[in-house]
Amino acid sequence: MPETVTFFLFAALAVIASLLVIGQRNPMYSVLLLIASFGALSGLYIQLEAPFVAVAQIIIYAGAIMVLFLFVVMLLNAPKEDAAEWDRTHPLRQPGVARWGTLLVGLLIVQLAMALLAVREYHTPVGAQSDATAVNSVAEMGRSIFTRHTFAFEATSILILVAMVGAVVLARREGDQ
């Protein structure tokens, strides 16, 4: 089953890269590992018959957003976290908070296990109830965005404009006029 093999390959890559992202002390490596994780997710999108999302994932996430992060990491010349000291002063390290946190994590695990045990259709294949041509057409997707979802699309353009102006205003030095 090549499909199963590629799924587990991409899934393992995504999980391991994401774990290393939060396990790294050096933000530079974190950003590069996150790009690997996004690449793996893009492979999964291709398996899910979503070519547009797969390509957008590479171009927008790995290409644009992560480059922005890389620029900021290099611009700030951020040092590695002062690990020992920051960990010692972490608010979650205080005994009371740590106990509550452990309790909540335990409750969450119990609840997740109960929810997973209640699922009956574990093995229904993801594409069993529909054929691939219903979802893999980029032309159909564009038509839907510009007809049914026009309002959301226009709202998004305003959001991007606001974000752009906001980023310029926030990152400006106070002295410049």
Binding site: L48, E49, A50, F52, V53, V126, G127, Q129, S130, D131, A134, V135, S137, E140, M141, S144
Partner: peptide, 9 residues
Amino acid sequence: RFAGDLDGQ
């Protein structure tokens, strides 16, 4: 993909 619907994408 499960629902055969483009809105997810």
